[in-house]
Design a protein around this nucleic acid. Structure first.
Length: 282
DNA sequence: AGCCAGGTTTGTA
DNA sequence: TACAAACATGGC
C-alpha cells in the first residue's frame, strides 16, 4: 500500500450516456456485483474495478485505468448513435430506457468462454457458473481490501477434464469448453481475428466447438468492437415479432433483417432492444 | 411442476 | 441447404 500517493482514477463527469446498471445488467457481461447506492464491483479478465456515483457522475477505481478506459469505450459519442438508431417508436422507447448503455470492449478469451456457457442457458445460471470456474481456476487477486479471482486462462481450463466441468454444472457444454480451451492453449490466436472482416472473423470463431453464429456475433460485438452484427437469441425473436414484423423467419433471417436496417450500428441497436425487452418481461 | 434459457451439434433428406 | 431432434442444468 502507498497511502501517500494520489490514486489515479477515471472520472465520469457527464452521466447522460453512462449508467452502470444499464451497462452491466444489459446482458453483455456477467462478472458484476451491485453493492450499495448504485455502486458496482466488477471483474474483467485479471482486472477489477469499483464504479460508484460521485456528484453528477461516477468515479471508477481500478487495478488498471488504461484497461478500463478502453473497456468502457469512453471516447465514443453515444449522442450521435442514439440519434441514428431512432428508427421507430419502439426503438425510441428502448433508447430512452437504456440511455446509459455502453458496449464494452471485453477480453476476447473471457467473452468466448462466457458466451459458450450462455447458450441455451439462463443469465443467473451463467453468472454462477462463471464465478465458480473463476474461483476454482482463476488467479487469486487483491484490490482495496477485496479478494477476487481473475478469469481462468485457456491453459487452466485445458488442464481439467470433461467430468470436472460437468461437476461444475456445465452439462453438455463441458465438452465445448474443454475442446475450445485446448484449441486456444495450443495456439489458436484470437487476436489475429481482429484484422479480419466481420464475415471472416465469424467463420473462424464458428470453427471453435460450442460457437455458432449467435455466440460468434456476441463475441464479435462485445470483444472485437465489430458493430455490424445483430445477435439473435430467443429474446430478439420476441422483439422482432412484437415490435417489427410478423413474418415467420429463421434466426439468421431476423439478424439479416436488422442489419439491413441498422447497418454498422446494428450491435448497438440490438443491445438497447435486448435490455428493454428483457427488463419488461423478467 | 413444468417451462425455458443470450443455441449448438449432429443427423437426415 | 434446410430442418428437427437431442442435449444437461437449475432458476423461476
Amino acid at each position: 500500500m502507498q497511502p501517500f500517493l494520489c490514486k489515479i482514477m477515471i472520472k465520469i463527469q457527464d452521466s447522460a450516456y453512462f449508467n452502470p446498471k444499464s451497462i452491466f445488467e444489459c446482458g453483455q457481461m456477467f462478472r458484476y456485483m451491485p453493492t450499495c447506492n448504485g455502486a458496482y464491483r466488477i471483474v474483467s479478465a485479471a482486472h477489477m474495478a469499483i464504479v460508484e456515483p460521485k456528484g453528477n457522475g461516477y468515479e471508477i477505481q481500478s487495478t488498471n485505468d488504461n484497461y478500463f478506459t478502453h473497456y468502457f469505450d469512453l471516447q465514443r459519442d453515444y449522442t450521435d448513435i442514439c440519434e441514428k438508431l431512432a428508427f421507430n417508436e419502439q426503438m425510441v422507447k428502448a433508447l430512452e430506457f437504456g440511455r446509459g448503455i455502453r458496449i464494452l470492449a471485453q477480453n476476447k478469451f473471457e467473452t468466448l468462454i462466457s458466451f459458450i456457457i450462455s447458450s441455451n442457458n439462463h443469465i443467473p445460471r451463467i453468472k454462477g457458473i462463471i464465478e465458480r470456474l473463476s474461483t476454482a481456476l482463476g488467479e487469486r487477486k487483491h484490490f482495496y481490501g477485496f479478494d477476487y479471482f481473475a478469469f481462468p486462462t485457456a491453459e487452466a481450463l485445458a488442464s481439467k477434464s470433461e467430468d470436472y466441468f460437468i461437476s461444475q454444472g456445465l452439462g453438455y457444454r463441458a465438452r465445448y469448453i474443454l475442446e475450445t480451451a485446448k484449441k486456444i492453449s495450443q495456439g489458436f490466436d484470437l487476436e489475429e481475428l481482429t484484422a479480419l472482416s466481420t464475415r471472416d472473423a465469424r467463420k473462424e470463431l464458428c470453427s471453435l466447438m460450442g460457437v455458432g453464429s449467435k455466440v460468434a456475433d456476441c463475441i464479435l460485438l462485445f470483444a472485437y468492437g465489430k458493430y455490424d452484427v445483430f445477435p439473435v437469441d430467443t429474446w430478439m425473436e420476441k422483439v422482432y415479432y412484437d415490435y417489427f414484423d410478423k413474418n415467420k423467419l429463421s434466426a439468421k433471417q431476423i439478424s439479416d433483417y436488422f442489419v439491413n436496417i441498422f447497418g454498422c450500428l446494428s450491435g448497438f441497436a440490438q443491445q438497447y432492444l435486448f435490455y428493454y425487452k428483457r427488463e419488461q418481461e423478467i
